[in-house]
């Protein structure tokens, strides 16, 4: 199958069930909301060593936030409820509570509640105040610029992590351009993050290593520096490979994001083929077949 002359491999991306939460952060202006969001979602590219995968889902107009100030929506994904609880507490506590003028709210309507302000209130040393507004409980913690307002809990839902697209290109410029276009399209889909730097990862991995202590190691089959070896998957014209990893609140969102990214990337000259990472289908619950997701109507 070809799309704009780009070969789409008959393969699938293998994704996993994860736990996710959305936190809405507001501040006096969008700059400070973004500062809080960037800090809270920093060092969160992969659950392998970061504890969670996180990113800024979208900026939110003042008219659509709980307190009428500009904000950002953050998504956090982890492999377990326990880990997600820990990550939310630490990241909201260290990066949002600390950010001038910020406030933090639950961003999902339903789900198992995870503690947020419930744990952070103790920073108030007894001067914290609880308020119930519209059936939702908030904590007001005195801080040096006024008070930090934080919703008591934030709902957690089952989600999908590890959707991916692998772009194989003639050169580095084409691979990067295709990846950038894909990420721009992916980020327009609600409920999605691409957690790596700029949404793109160059160090795609395979399961296992010759070193027993490592659970994952470089995806040598797609390293151009190892092209020519028998196990290489690259042809003579393929000189650079980049990957985009996608986490989403639902499988439908991940599929829509992958399709949007695929279509956008395939408009770049120099992109030769698109493939996806999987483990033979035995590890992940979700299989996103590249050719099938392209047949679905584009996300509006």
């Amino acid at each position: 199958m070809n799309l704009n002359g780009v070969f789409i491999e008959d393969t699938f991306a293998e994704a996993f069930g994860m736990k996710a939460a959305r936190v809405v952060v507001t501040a006096c202006d969008v700059v400070w909301a973004r500062h809080a969001g960037v800090a809270a979602t920093g060092f969160a590219t992969s659950v392998i060593a970061c504890g969670c995968e996180a990113g800024i889902e979208a900026e939110i107009d003042a008219a659509r936030t709980p307190d009428g100030r500009p904000g950002v929506a953050l998504l956090f994904f982890a492999v377990s409820t326990k880990e997600l609880t820990k990550q939310i507490e630490r990241r909201v506590g260290q990066c949002i509570l600390t950010c001038p003028s910020s406030a933090a709210y639950a961003g999902l309507a339903e789900g198992e509640p995870l503690p947020m302000g419930k744990a952070l209130r103790y920073f108030g040393d007894g001067f914290q105040i609880a308020k119930v507004i519209g059936g939702r409980r908030y904590w007001r913690v005195p801080v040096m610029d006024g008070e930090f307002l934080c919703e008591e809990t934030t709902p957690m839902v089952k989600a999908v992590g590890g959707g991916n697209l692998i772009f194989v290109a003639e050169n580095a410029a084409a691979a990067l351009a295709a990846s950038e276009r894909a990420v721009a399209a992916i980020r327009r889909v609600p409920g999605i993050i691409a957690p790596f730097p700029g949404g793109v990862v160059r160090s795609g991995s395979k399961v296992g290593s010759k070193y027993k202590a490592l659970p994952a190691s470089t995806n040598d089959a797609y390293c151009p520096g190892l092209r020519g070896r028998p196990a290489s998957m690259l042809t003579a014209e393929e000189n650079c490979v980049l990957e985009v990893v996608i986490d989403g609140l639902t499988a439908e969102a991940v599929a829509a994001a992958m399709a949007a990214g695929l279509r956008a990337a395939c408009e770049v000259a120099g992109l030769r083929r698109v493939t996806a990472g999987n483990y033979g289908g035995k590890l992940g619950q979700f299989h996103f077949k590249l050719r099938e997701i392209l047949e679905a109507p584009p996300c509006p």
Partner: peptide, 13 residues
Amino acid sequence: FAADVFLRLLRRH
């Protein structure tokens, strides 16, 4: 300090 964020939340509610 006059609890601006809390008041915004309350007023919108």
